[in-house]
Design a protein around this nucleic acid. Structure first.
Lengths: 342, 342
DNA sequence: CTGAAAGCGCTTACAG
DNA sequence: CTGAAAGCGCTTACAG
């Protein structure tokens, strides 16, 4: 950190008091136009910049948003960062990032640590462990202290706060209907374990679509990946042993693996089998054929999260109380590529 | 930001002075064991946490590292973040992130803004525009103010500061030699424009390997992508019109595109053509066959960058001067997959 | 062993 | 129109 000129030094140079300098620099009409301009000119010439730390101390705010992510090497999460960074920057907030590595303990430590570091608010997507154990006390504590939180994508009903989600249920429902209406009968779903909120919603949409169509659900058509690191071989086995004419994957990796295996089996895509993936990223445009996708609009979700949080923050600083919690739904965007006929 | 108990309040409750509280909480031997423990107990019971902003003001340091990235939706850069976050956290620093979007103007604004926000130091990878125009005055200004900078991957010789790079030249040289030694004669290189430091070094390694082997360089074998967004079609044309038995791509996208086009041409991989990619990520394991890669070790580079910066910071706070600049080289790691025989 | 005072860099209610 | 004083929450040299 650097030594720049301070109000005190300016006051000394100009032979006035610090109060006068402060007011002049804030362009207060209490100070005569003439003196004000003189002080401002001198300040500019000497590259005066107000010391943000001193202001933080006075204002009891750090103009800092903390983002806690389960994982960062991930197309969706990095798109979200991009969106958050953009509005944070525009609205004068810094963005500090920290990672929970999908561990509840680390998430708790991160939150507590950053609370103690006086961040103004949090944006976070829950770690897998947090979701599976559904422990959110660390978040409740932050909220009770008056620090607002926005949850996105991986959320929890156990906590009352602002949330940003995709229309996962509807997207899955609609896309399953689409597959049904082009005559697909044996539609497979490759999804995550139930504790992941997002996966559960997508699974539900899929199931409801099938049942509402009057078909009976074949549980063998649903693969819940037990070990993500080993997803490829789980998917290979699934595709090998199941006769499908449609596949929905809840993320690119799953769907790309399924595609590869279907091609191995000699299936024509999309003639024999249609494929749809959630969560559009790099992979979808590099498979052959390219994957039709329901893009999760990470950047939009990031922007929306940052807006919700900053609105809360600005409201709190004015009215000293939180706004009622709201949930924003960002719709997925259909990107037709080559693995579907629609 | 929250209202927690302060030393003043503790002092009032315990009927002692603030100085005494401060010393007791810092476990100073100036204060009697008995009183010290009493105060510490009371503080703990009331969840006292020192106000970091007040400490920042006193210490003239914010314990904050600023990271400026050209782009974030990118496997390499997000791995770097992961590495930086890890050591920053361990060593008690916050990490604030901001994006230059590959624009010089935005990079300059980010640096200046964050300097004014009193970050302690910077880690950055230069924007394309910064590299092509080679303007680094904004960085020199920060350094002149006493704020250390670590540059990684996309660096500039125009500035004297700590740097972290891959052994790009050697990697390219070695891998080209490998290809030559298995008998490949027509090795293509798909790279970036010359102003990208990394691309240039890799290109040089490739050229030197070929010339040292006594072969004459065929300029038609080098494709410099002019418009990254349009790389796929540039690569398709290149592969179609050039007869190659080896391909080196400076990133996954380029190499994956080349692979797809070679397969279209009916080439057997790696029998007819060997492929090697720099910069390992998601894509490499999802192509068929999977790409052999020179992994850039993003996480290691991030860790090393953070270490260099924090060492500087700690040295500055002790000795009031910067350590001489050093450059760390993180070697790429060879990951043999299926597009090479070695 | 304890405390009053000054200081980090700023703002603002109050006096003149 | 200008300035002295108090305060944000802490530390530390100095006095007693």
């Amino acid at each position: 950190m650097i030594n720049r000129i301070t109000q005190k030094q300016i006051a000394h140079h100009m032979q006035v008091s610090v109060s006068t300098v402060s007011k002049a620099l804030n362009d207060s009409h209490e100070i005569s136009k003439e003196l004000r301009v003189k002080i401002q000119d001198f300040a500019k010439k000497n590259q005066y910049v107000p010391n943000p730390t001193a202001l933080n101390l006075k204002n009891k705010s750090t103009k800092t948003i903390a983002l806690i992510l389960p994982e960062i090497v991930h197309h969706f999460f990095s798109s979200v960062i991009k969106g958050i960074e953009q509005v944070a920057w525009e609205r004068g907030y810094k963005l500090v990032i920290s990672l929970s590595q999908d561990s509840l303990l680390k998430e708790v430590q991160n939150v507590q640590h950053l609370v103690n570091k006086n961040v103004d608010g949090f944006i976070l997507s829950l770690s897998k462990e947090t979701q599976s154990e559904n422990k959110v006390q660390h978040l409740q504590e932050a909220i009770d202290l008056g620090i607002p939180i926005v949850l996105f994508d991986r959320i929890s009903d156990a906590i009352n706060c602002d949330k940003v989600i995709s229309n996962d249920y509807e997207s899955a429902l609609n896309v399953t209907n689409k597959l049904l209406s082009e005559g697909r009968k044996n539609i497979g779903l490759i999804t995550t374990q139930d504790y992941i909120s997002v996966g559960t919603l997508r699974t539900k949409g899929y199931i409801d679509a099938i049942e509402k169509a009057g078909l009976k659900l074949n549980p063998k058509f649903i693969l819940k990946i037990s070990d993500v690191k080993n997803s490829k071989s789980e998917i290979q086995k699934f595709i090998k042993t199941t006769d499908l004419d449609g596949v929905i994957g809840v993320n690119e990796k799953f769907t790309a693996s399924a595609l590869a295996e279907l091609k191995n089996k000699g299936k024509e895509i999309p003639t024999d089998v249609s494929l749809v993936t959630f969560s559009d990223g790099l992979l979808s445009t590099f498979t052959t054929p390219q994957l039709s996708a329901l893009d999760q609009q990470g950047m939009e979700m990031g922007k929306e999260s940052a807006c919700l949080l900053i609105n809360q923050l600005e409201n709190i600083s004015k009215k000293k109380e939180m706004l009622p919690a709201m949930t924003s739904v960002v719709n997925t965007k259909w990107i037709r590529r080559e693995t579907t006929k629609f």
